[in-house]
Amino acid sequence: MNWIWFHKLGSPKWFFQWANKWSKFAFFIGVLLLTIGVVWGLGFAPADYQQGNSFRIIYIHVPTAILAQSCYLGLGVAGIVSLVWRMKMAPVFIKAVAPLGAVMALIALISGAIWGKPTWGAWWVWDARLTSVLILFLLYMGVIAIQNSLDDMQLADKAVAVISVVGLINLPIIKYSVEWWNTLHQPATFTITAKPAMPMEMWLPLLLSTLGMYGFIAGVAMWRMQAEVLVREHRANWVKKEVLDNGI
């Protein structure tokens, strides 16, 4: 297998130029798909036979919940890369993406509560799914807090890498919580093995808004990483040249 791209991405200079090219693309495609998906889902997709229109919050709830978990998976992988290969970009990724993941987890929790009140009859229940996602949010907050409270940057990078890796254990617990235990939260609608338990006119807008959310977060994450690279590499000649040539 060819690992050159992987090592190139580990170089701050190469990443900066690569992100210059792709961040806008990811961001605008993401915003476009997100807008189409959300407008379609909220305005035009059919209502549910049991829940009526209140089910439409799924078009916000599911994309943010998926992104909250995907961002954490990224954090965990970056944590391993950071601890094992000591690549410069891995801690930059963790620092840039942790707040984005935290916001996604928070929106998923809030939209879930708003959905829960009319359908279940409660804003919050201490069931395994809800609690494990709350723990995910708290893990993000822990990563952000430790990153910002340690003045020694290398020490902070190492500490958040360790938390990111350890927190990976929470991801399968979130995924399988609805199968391992009795929960109020329903099991997954989409599985790899079976057909989706909703018709296409419902899942297509959901797919678009989820892909759109990935693009949006990817774009914002690249910009945040670029900013962090400029701070960390401010002594490098290429940064000086970049700033003088193109401004910030």
Binding site: Y49, Q186, A197, P199, M202
Partner: peptide, 18 residues
């Protein structure tokens, strides 16, 4: 003292349910 409704993972438009 409290009754909560659980719903399953299946969604469909009312016409199809009918």
């Amino acid at each position: 003292q409290e009754v909560l409704a659980k719903h399953d993972e299946k969604y469909m438009p009312p016409e199809i349910a009918e």
